[in-house]
């Protein structure tokens, strides 16, 4: 096994007095695709927010390249090569498609991703580059959100429920694009409600339940019963 690029050790996270994560141990290596599944409110988004600095956590509970990075500001995390496609996309409504993508490149990390390359991959975005990003269809907006994250040339891409609210055919289109995106050794974390999709696109998976890891292992190594128990508890 390659040394983990990102690791969390006993990660705990709080919103005010309410604790949302109770000691998450997680790791992902270079070039790996890992899925995180779990019911609504299990803590999946909180986990991604903790890793990216949107929720403050203790320094030594998040390690990037082995260095304590918990509690860093989001800007420092993205400059270290971890980019988030946030839940609900959160595009900038007053920015055009192209301006949204350019914002993603704000961290100025060197790497293969550029406007040209994204436009080559999603030609529709080139066509619509001048229009407000939030005037696009849901699927196209998701492409912008993913493209915006890629513009920072991440080593690890975190995707929070990118299929939410999209038509099945659009979901398939987006997940089909994933292997090409990750081809150059980028690691990907996929947060998904759809267990089948999650298993299909990932090598390993974690299931969260009420802020704890309830199941962990190779994505194709579980029975339905194991997963549904880990997903819902008893």
């Amino acid at each position: 096994m390659t040394a983990p690029f990102l690791q969390t050790v006993g990660l705990r996270a709080h919103y005010g007095d309410a604790q949302a994560l109770f000691g998450i141990d997680f790791h992902i290596g270079e070039g790996e695709t890992v899925a995180v599944i779990g019911a609504n409110g299990a803590g999946k988004s909180t986990f991604l927010k903790s890793v990216t600095g949107l929720v403050r956590v203790a320094p030594e509970t998040v390690l990037i390249d082995g260095r304590p990075s918990g509690g860093s500001v989001p800007g420092d995390i993205v400059r270290q090569g971890v980019a988030l496609v946030p839940e609900g996309r959160r595009l900038f409504p007053s920015l055009s498609v192209e301006e949204n993508l350019l914002m993603g490149g704000y961290a100025r990390r060197p790497g293969p991703w550029s406007l040209q390359r994204l436009y080559g991959m999603f030609p529709i975005l080139k066509e619509k580059r001048k229009v407000p990003a939030t005037s696009l269809s849901g699927g196209q907006q998701q492409m912008v959100a993913i493209g915006r994250a890629l513009m920072s040339n991440p080593r690890l891409l975190l995707c929070d429920e990118i299929s939410l609210g999209l038509a099945p055919i659009v979901i398939k289109e987006i997940y089909d694009a994933l292997p090409a995106i990750a081809a150059e050794g980028m690691s990907v974390v996929i947060v998904e409600q759809d267990v089948m999709v999650a298993q299909r696109v990932s090598q390993r998976l974690y299931c969260f339940q009420e802020g704890r890891v309830s199941l962990e292992g190779a994505s194709d190594g579980f029975t339905r019963e194991q997963i549904s128990q880990a997903y819902f508890g008893i």
Binding site: T52, G75, V78, P86, F92, M103, Y106, R148
Partner: peptide, 9 residues
């Protein structure tokens, strides 16, 4: 928050 995710201060 989204702007800070991009690295803006």
């Amino acid at each position: 928050e989204a702007a800070e995710l991009m690295g803006l201060n």
